[in-house]
Design a protein around this nucleic acid. Structure first.
Lengths: 354, 354
DNA sequence: TTGTAAGCGTTATCAT
DNA sequence: ATGATAACGCTTACAA
């Protein structure tokens, strides 16, 4: 049995920099640099010799030195809500897809948990030139982080958009259109009494766009169809969803259709429905906007517009790369309204009890 | 009504570096540097003048230049499973707590989604001196990333541990002890037929520590108590949990106690139990290891050892900081076995059917 | 095809 | 108490 090696195997006692590679390959530092970047032709023989040395010692250019010289870091900043807040599944998919898209483009991602008021991590990000650009999540209608980024002249893309998004790059879900579609879908099925289970009142109070836009669109769509609409704020957790449904049944038993954009509340909503012994979709139809896997997990499977979070993260990275490469290009937006996937939670309204 | 400003407000057309601050304050660059770092005494008057200029223009030292000069980046690398895999709640809490703990220490976090086989993002992390240290999640019993990190001589801490963890820094949950405790708790309540719902077979096959250690400890504890044990691998999702329970009822109807470390399967397990019309804890007891909020969400509330993910992330950052500051210090570990929180899902075993 | 040298913005070592 | 200056490791214009 071999002896345990507790000491790290210090393979490279000496500093491995481009000069050392050059020395070992018997060329100048610039030749190594050019061999690596390909910005100047290097003879096949020397290129091969250099590559052999590099492979042998596992050399990679020092990121800080390169960043200092080139003026860019090959790193993207991703500003996420602080950890104290539990992220929704859709938010997590944003993070995951941004990180993965960036990795595909050989870009690193620096995470900054930011609570909105200026914290040091965010300050470092923008004024320390730590990143070439920033992706901002969970945008408010009035968002001071956007202002700070604009002042710093740092390229950025938002997932979500402010109240005045004309001059910025953003990717967003068209909650207004999707909620309206859900209402129309239910109205087409004969539902006349419809409720909206929205995001939390606190979120709306702090100017969270989707909450506002969903509410406005809901009211308008319901009015268009001559239906009656109730809208209910609901915190982002299952317990709140259950409580919210209980209240709804108590105060508005006439409701036959529910529209929801609160995916975190879905498990609680389902539980509330089951406990009340309400049959979906026979007695009650439910439609909404949610991450696809949550819609599939709902029982019965939820008719919903599936938020394309994975592609949105990739789009955000793409837009940001363009913004970085060509800062003077005209602004671009992406407002996504994915189709509603018909699953099993909506059906014609039950006949009114006589 | 004011005209919309679509152009970013370019407040600083000129490069704001330490030289420019020095010029505006009428001092030398070194004085500015020392005023900022406090490594040399600077007269109150000049210090104040410098600070005024800095506040006015919002200057912060260029991170790349500082990293190049100091030889450290003030950045930590966090290696996470690739986005394609949906992270469990506990894993997410690790990420969140690491990022937050790092931010508290004024450290930035670079995310590297790594699939195990060498990908470029991981390579950049270790050989490009992009970070001062690395936190590794989802460690395998034999993990080549650990070897690479050791070879690179880069300080690192793992969340989880390899089969031979003696020479490395790590923080881990003592799944073996916790599973044993669950078995003993159930045995104390009179349960003689106990099942373990483990993580997936694939995970175990690729040498995932918790899956192995849980299984071994389960077998041993069951043997100690003279009970009968069934162990079942289960994929990390609700559907698998439901399916797993259905199979369990079909093949082993004699089971009265379940131990589970698969938190992602919990919602499905609950659903399966409800559909089978089994009363918990009267007919069936369930105990496990899970994130506290998932245990609270289970119905009835799950008796479980609550994984202290939030403090573990903080501990990992703490250990890593020590490792970076004093690489020659002896290795340190942290094996956590939080107590089992008695909730509502366990009760004395039902009397055997006669 | 290759080498030389300047400079990116900092910090730290000399001086003064 | 402060200023000049030399690195840190890299890229790239300029020479050869």
């Amino acid at each position: 049995m071999p002896t345990l090696r507790c000491e790290p195997i210090r393979q490279w006692e000496i500093r491995m920099n481009i000069g050392e590679i050059a020395r070992r390959a018997g060329v100048s530092r610039s030749t190594v640099s050019y061999a690596l970047s390909g910005r100047r032709s290097v003879s096949a023989a020397t290129k091969q010799r250099i590559q052999a040395v590099i492979d042998e010692v596992g050399y990679r250019p020092n990121a800080a030195a390169r960043a200092l010289k080139e003026g860019r870091t090959r790193t993207l900043g991703l500003v996420v809500p602080p950890a104290s807040l539990r992220l929704t599944d859709t938010q997590l998919e944003f993070v995951a897809s941004v990180v993965e898209a960036a990795a595909r483009a050989d870009l690193d991602v620096l995470l900054s948990p930011s609570g909105g008021d200026h914290d040091r991590s965010f300050e470092r990000l923008i004024s320390g030139r730590r990143v070439d650009g920033v992706i901002l999540m969970e945008i408010r209608l009035e968002d001071e982080r956007v202002t700070l980024l604009q002042q710093a002249g740092l390229p950025f893309v938002t997932i979500g958009r402010t109240a005045h998004p004309e001059g910025t790059f953003w990717v967003d879900v068209d909650y207004a259109a999707l909620v309206a579609r859900c209402v129309h879908h239910l109205a087409d099925l004969g539902h006349r009494e419809i409720a909206l289970i929205n995001r939390s009142a606190e979120l709306a109070a702090t100017g969270y766009g989707p909450a506002h836009r969903a509410q406005t669109a809901f009211t308008e769509a319901v009015r268009q169809r001559g239906a009656t609409g109730i809208d209910l704020p609901c915190a982002d957790d299952p317990a709140a969803g259950e409580e919210c449904f209980a209240q709804l049944r108590e105060r508005h038993p006439e409701i036959t259709g529910i529209v929801t954009i609160n995916e975190a509340a879905l498990p609680g909503l389902q539980r509330g429905i089951e406990r009340a012994g309400v049959a979906v979709p026979r007695e009650l139809s439910v439609a909404g906007v949610a991450a696809a896997h949550l819609a599939e997990r709902f029982r019965p499977r939820l008719t919903a517009a599936d938020v394309p979070a994975l592609t949105m993260g990739a789009h955000a990275v793409e837009l940001l790369q363009e913004r970085i490469a060509a800062p003077e290009n005209p602004v671009r937006h992406l407002l996504l309204a994915p189709p509603i996937s018909l699953r099993d939670s909506t059906a014609p309204a039950p006949l009114p009890r006589t």
